[in-house]
């Protein structure tokens, strides 16, 4: 038992549980729906997860520091629309520049959020509720009630969602999924090994202690918001590429999906725990449920929101009630081990 405990941390157990949950969901719907798991279903879920997954990482960044970003959906809509508009006017723009433009636009909006949260000391929920409305307003006002049309976009961006990296059987691993996985892996490493990542956790676990320990807490929260905005900008670009036709309401509600994903994925809103891979698995679970419920004949599609809401609540409840107990158990056994170790050394 002790050995097992040393090998697995509570958070790894949580990730294992999420993995099992994904398998259970797949098996359940597989027994309910005929021809459930096919190539089309895989593509639909993976295309949708590649956007929500990136947003989940963006949300994780600020979530770790005990903050929220509710303006993510508006940032996605904003970048998707204006990058699209620019592309329609300048069809020959280099793809790399387009992506950089989307990321830069998002980072700019994220920095506005970060400025108010970190340096203005306004609670993040207030700031981002405000900018949620503000960014959307700017979008609606400056769009002249136009719609971006697929036909007017350059071919490379329209074809990108179908770009394949490799196939296993008839399951295609698309380019967008690769981009999302790259983001997840990079941030998993950042969270786990870079000083910057560890500081995010420190600020989230105890903001006062982090400040007293001399961390530039304001700057770290500020940069977390900039990165969050930049990733949302990237997601905005992916959104444009996936849907092609973008209206002024694009991306509405994505902030809820991203929060749902990170919460189910075990990123704690009290800050200080969670991982990029967990957030990704949260995104997969939510998308899997959403896309499966639509095809489940037993209930109407209108049940989706209710089930989703309850699911998020249960995820948070289990996190608070079970995980805190597990962590205590681990901490206690760790203490015993060090005590035994100290005794041996005394002899």
């Amino acid at each position: 038992m002790k050995n097992l405990m040393r090998r697995f941390a509570p958070d790894q157990i949580r990730e294992l549980v999420l993995l099992v949950l994904i398998a259970v969901i797949l098996l359940f719907f597989n027994s309910q729906i005929e021809n459930y798991f096919n190539a089309r279903f895989f593509n639909r879920v993976s295309a949708s997860v590649s956007i929500v997954g990136v947003l989940a990482i963006a949300q994780t960044l600020v979530f770790l520091t005990r903050n929220y970003d509710l303006s993510i959906g508006s940032i996605v809509g904003f970048t998707a629309f204006f990058v699209g508009q620019y592309l329609v006017a300048h069809n020959d723009m280099h793809p790399v520049l387009v992506v950089l433009m989307a990321i830069g636009m998002g980072a700019l909006m994220g920095s506005v959020n970060g400025l108010f949260v970190a340096y203005g000391r306004i609670p993040s929920i207030i700031v981002t509720l405000g900018t949620l409305a503000l960014y959307r307003t700017i979008l609606v006002e400056f769009s002249n009630a136009q719609t971006i049309l697929t036909a007017k976009l350059p071919d490379w961006i329209v074809d990108m969602p179908r770009l394949n990296i490799f196939s296993v059987g008839d399951l295609d691993f698309r380019f967008m999924v690769g981009v999302m996985l790259l983001v997840v892996i990079v941030f998993q490493l950042v969270f786990r090994y870079l000083p910057y990542g560890r500081r995010l956790y420190a600020i989230g676990s105890n903001p006062d202690a982090a400040r007293m320990a001399g961390f530039p807490a304001q700057r770290i929260v500020f940069t977390a918001y900039i990165l969050c905005g930049a990733l949302s900008g990237l997601a905005g670009f992916m959104f444009l590429s996936r849907f092609g036709n973008v209206t002024v309401v694009a991306g509405q509600g994505l902030e809820i999906s991203s929060i749902a994903a990170v919460v189910v994925g075990g990123v704690s809103n009290n800050g200080g725990s969670g991982s990029a891979i967990g957030a990704l698995m949260g995104a997969i679970i939510i998308d899997l449920i959403e896309n499966s419920l639509i095809r489940w004949p037993v209930i109407s599609e209108f049940w989706r929101d209710s089930i989703l809401g309850i699911l998020i609540l249960l995820a948070v409840a289990s996190d608070t009630l079970v995980m805190s107990r597990l962590r205590n158990m681990w901490a206690r056994s760790e203490l015993q081990l060090t005590a035994v170790h100290a005794e041996k050394q005394d002899k």
């Binding site: 929220y68 809103n269 929101d305 209710s306 609540l313 948070v316």
Partner: peptide, 10 residues
């Protein structure tokens, strides 16, 4: 915040 956010959806 989380409770009422998820119940807002539900």
């Amino acid at each position: 915040l989380v409770v009422t956010l998820s119940m807002m959806i539900a």
